[in-house]
Lab assay of single mutants.
Amino acid sequence: QIFVKTLTGKTITLEVEPSDTIENVKAKIQDKEGIPPDQQRLIFAGKQLEDGRTLSDYNIQKESTLHLVL
């Protein structure tokens, strides 16, 4: 699982696999929060994550925290 922290300070927990794409993660966030993926920007280690890449591409491991910017 990974954590996604929103600007409001809320933390969302997501069940993911390293092979999941960023697009996939955004879809999971939409399921939980109702935020359309095209409004979501995910930041990890100061980098904006691209939809077509996977979590493992960015070396995002379990218990990692991503930041969600709208």
Score class of each variant (00 low, 15 high):
residue 35 I to Y: 13
residue 9 G to R: 04
residue 52 G to P: 07
residue 66 L to M: 05
residue 4 V to H: 01
residue 23 E to C: 14
residue 42 L to E: 00
residue 9 G to Q: 04
residue 46 G to A: 04
residue 56 S to E: 12
residue 14 L to H: 00
residue 59 N to M: 08
residue 10 K to A: 08
residue 46 G to F: 05
residue 54 T to S: 08
residue 45 A to D: 12
residue 53 R to G: 06
residue 19 S to V: 06
residue 49 L to I: 04
residue 35 I to E: 02
residue 40 Q to F: 15
residue 44 F to I: 03
residue 13 T to S: 09
residue 7 L to A: 13
residue 43 I to N: 05
residue 47 K to I: 14
residue 38 D to E: 12
residue 45 A to H: 12
residue 22 I to P: 02
residue 35 I to C: 06
residue 65 T to R: 05
residue 9 G to I: 02
residue 3 F to P: 01
residue 55 L to H: 00
residue 32 K to C: 10
residue 13 T to A: 09
residue 13 T to G: 05
residue 5 K to N: 06
residue 55 L to E: 00
residue 33 E to M: 13
residue 20 D to I: 05
residue 15 E to Q: 12
residue 52 G to V: 07
residue 16 V to N: 02
residue 10 K to G: 08
residue 3 F to H: 09
residue 67 H to V: 14
residue 21 T to S: 08
residue 58 Y to G: 01
residue 17 E to A: 09
residue 57 D to E: 11
residue 54 T to K: 10
residue 59 N to Y: 07
residue 66 L to T: 02
residue 44 F to A: 03
residue 44 F to P: 00
residue 31 D to Q: 13
residue 15 E to F: 14
residue 63 E to N: 13
residue 29 I to Q: 00
residue 36 P to K: 07
residue 59 N to T: 05
residue 10 K to V: 09
residue 24 N to Y: 14
residue 62 K to D: 15
residue 1 Q to G: 05
residue 61 Q to F: 09
residue 12 I to R: 02
residue 18 P to K: 06
residue 23 E to T: 09
residue 45 A to F: 10
residue 41 R to W: 08
residue 31 D to V: 13
residue 14 L to S: 01
residue 32 K to E: 07
residue 57 D to C: 04
residue 4 V to R: 00
residue 66 L to I: 12
residue 21 T to K: 09
residue 57 D to F: 15
residue 56 S to W: 09
residue 4 V to N: 01
residue 6 T to S: 07
residue 40 Q to S: 04
residue 46 G to K: 04
residue 18 P to H: 07
residue 20 D to M: 10
residue 1 Q to T: 14
residue 61 Q to T: 13
residue 16 V to M: 08
residue 7 L to Q: 14
residue 29 I to F: 03
residue 62 K to Y: 15
residue 23 E to G: 13
residue 9 G to S: 04
residue 34 G to I: 02
residue 50 E to I: 07
residue 24 N to H: 10
residue 5 K to P: 01
residue 10 K to S: 08
residue 9 G to W: 04
residue 4 V to T: 02
residue 49 L to S: 00
residue 66 L to A: 02
residue 63 E to A: 10
residue 47 K to V: 14
residue 18 P to T: 09
residue 18 P to F: 15
residue 68 L to G: 01
residue 9 G to E: 04
residue 6 T to A: 05
residue 67 H to Q: 11
residue 60 I to Q: 01
residue 1 Q to D: 05
residue 46 G to R: 04
residue 38 D to R: 11
residue 20 D to P: 01
residue 68 L to H: 01
residue 1 Q to K: 13
residue 38 D to N: 11
residue 11 T to F: 10
residue 20 D to H: 06
residue 29 I to D: 00
residue 36 P to M: 06
residue 25 V to T: 03
residue 50 E to M: 10
residue 28 K to W: 05
residue 49 L to P: 01
residue 36 P to N: 07
residue 35 I to S: 04
residue 37 P to Q: 11
residue 17 E to V: 12
residue 22 I to M: 04
